[in-house]
Amino acid sequence: MINITNLFKSYDEKCVVNNLSFHVLDNEIYGFIGKNGAGKSTTLNILAGLLHPDQGHIQIKEESLVGYLPESPSFYGWMTPREYMVYLSHGKKTLSIDELLRFVGLYNEKDRKIGGFSRGMKQRLGFACALLHDPKIVLLDEPTSALDPEGRKAIIDMILTLKKQGKTIIFSTHILYDVEYLADRILMIHEGKKMFEVDKKTFFKKHTSELLKLKFSEEPSYRHIIKLTELIGVDTFTHQENELTLSLKDKQTYFEILNYIKQEQLMLDGITFDKPSLEDLFIKEVNQS
């Protein structure tokens, strides 16, 4: 659906998007994650046509209209939502404005001035504007940030409805829960570069049972912690009072750990396997970079 190759964007000397390449499939939800200033919004602004790239190639499937919801959508505060959407339709065939306002829950506010709207209402209106021309591709920049839980849930539900309607959605966020919940594939950007791209299904399948949580009866000694974390199969670890969490490279290491615990006669209150969250991976990648 969308192919982006070797995208570059600089401001003065600062490179904001650095050789970014990715592709988005038809009818998938593609999530961008990254810290603030990572280049997510700049990439989306380039895709939407609000910024001109310095280099790179953007290929979008023929006749695919693109709708875009910026992070902080701006409107003419002296207009009503209806007037604004009529202006944006500029005589072209669009989806029914009343239907769209109903879809985003603003139908009863259609004749109120936008200037008096809350942040959440503006976000909803932005959503309606992005969908006005019935685009095949919808770009959403931080659609749920700065919204209350109710507003966030409403936007998430709308995104899922769009997917059911067959649209392709690209969205950026730093709320990892949202991307874990919504996205089919996830791209992490750091300082304008692609850090990793994962398929959510394979990611969680691959990482199941790799995180071992050991709960000791009493706090293990420093020597024991060092011994356990120095085992070849242990990738990273976190230690908090009686709890030791080990990220394992393979399942064989698990047995080695159990042998060591038995050998040293350490008392355990519990052993649990946990799947690593996207947040763990995100923090790990950011720290490594």
Binding site: G49, L50, Y68, P70, P73, S74, F75, L88, H90, A130
Partner: peptide, 17 residues
């Protein structure tokens, strides 16, 4: 300054208009 051209531009309203 207020970014009010974003939606019109994205909606295909021509700059000349």
């Amino acid at each position: 300054k207020e970014h009010t051209w974003h939606f019109p531009k994205l909606s295909g309203i021509e700059v000349k208009h």
